[in-house]
Amino acid sequence: MHRHRGVAALAAAVVLWASFALTIRGIGASGLTPVDAAFLRFVTPVLLLAPWLPRALRAVRRERPGVVVALCLAGLPHFLLSALGGRLTTAALVGLLLPGSVPLFVAVILAVTRGERVRGRRLIALTAIVLGIAATAVLTTAGATTTGIGVLLAAGFVWAVYTIGLGRTRLDLISVVLVICTPAALVAAVLEVTGALPVNLTSAPVSHLALFVVLQGVGTGIFSTLSYGYAVRRLGSGIPAVIGAISPVLTTVLAVPLFGEPITAGVLVALALVVGGVITYNVKPRDRAGSALAGPPPAAGHRPHVRGLQPHLTTGVVEHPAAAGQLHLQ
């Protein structure tokens, strides 16, 4: 029964990760501006988790400033870069490049800052990811889309920095969500009030406001984090990390009826390379005790740095590690 619940939680997380990419792509057609969407995205978790805010503030005072800055990058900077990239590209590329580029950037950052080298299976996996990213650029003819690919890669780099910070933080999971969302919500609120960037929150259809509150604020901001964490505890870290790589595939398929985006040969090549690379990166080799995918669940804490409780990329906060970009920080 616990395993079935873990599978159900994992399926919910994958769907929510895909919804992040799809709603990011749909901002332009919603009547909302990126600032409006960011406001809904970050204010909602802060309001729902407000009872835990004093505890989070006390915990932040004990955290290292560099780690706090790294966590905050997953807020407004990542969201606005993702929104701009989604405006210039397709839902398929948002769902693919945001999580898919993170393992590559994390490996590069750790190699530069800590001298860590990538060998064997993971080197092959990262090579496949690079080739997949290159394929998206080579097979793209529109200048705007090429620029959008660069913006999405910048968003992936920002999430990679956040991922490393998440692996080093001493904050509990709810405090991490509040550290990410609270500053982003405050800045977005200031932008809404001052009009420093285009805003349209009061004129957007109520149905679109509700959609972003539910999918981005509640779904991506809170439920995907909790469902993924639950799945990891029930299934171990390997299976969720590998299954999470199907999120870009789901995004690509759903983008066909929702946005009329065709599944081109270039998209298929990029999907095969990036998703295959991410799966290869995350699958642990068998050890003497058997398959590492069937390893014991992590300890019953909520701290993000506990092995097995990895951040999702995508997207948003501790969620869509962010999708295909699950990382096992050693």
Rank of each mutant, 00 (worst) to 15 (best):
A210D: 11
L104G: 01
R286Y: 07
S237V: 03
T33H: 12
H320D: 05
V106M: 00
L40S: 12
V7N: 08
L327D: 00
V43H: 10
L22G: 05
E319P: 06
A50W: 11
A107K: 02
G260R: 12
A92R: 03
G148N: 11
L10Q: 06
R168D: 07
L93Q: 15
T194L: 08
V249G: 03
A91T: 10
T182D: 05
G28H: 13
R87K: 14
A107I: 01
G26A: 15
G115W: 05
V283W: 11
L76G: 02
R307E: 13
W159L: 12
G150F: 03
V187T: 14
F20R: 00
A8W: 06
A29G: 15
V35N: 06
R62F: 04
A11V: 15
G290M: 12
A322L: 09
T23R: 02
I243K: 04
V43I: 14
G195N: 11
R234H: 12
P321F: 02
V318K: 01
T252M: 14
A210Q: 07
V199K: 08
I149V: 15
R117M: 05
H328Y: 06
T23D: 03
V274D: 00
V161K: 02
V46A: 09
I129R: 00
L178R: 03
V161N: 02
Q330V: 08
A128M: 13
V256A: 15
L73D: 04
T314D: 11
T44K: 07
A74S: 15
H312Q: 06
H328G: 05
I124G: 02
V218D: 01
G301M: 04
A154E: 00
L186D: 04
P240G: 10
P297F: 05
E63T: 13
L53V: 13
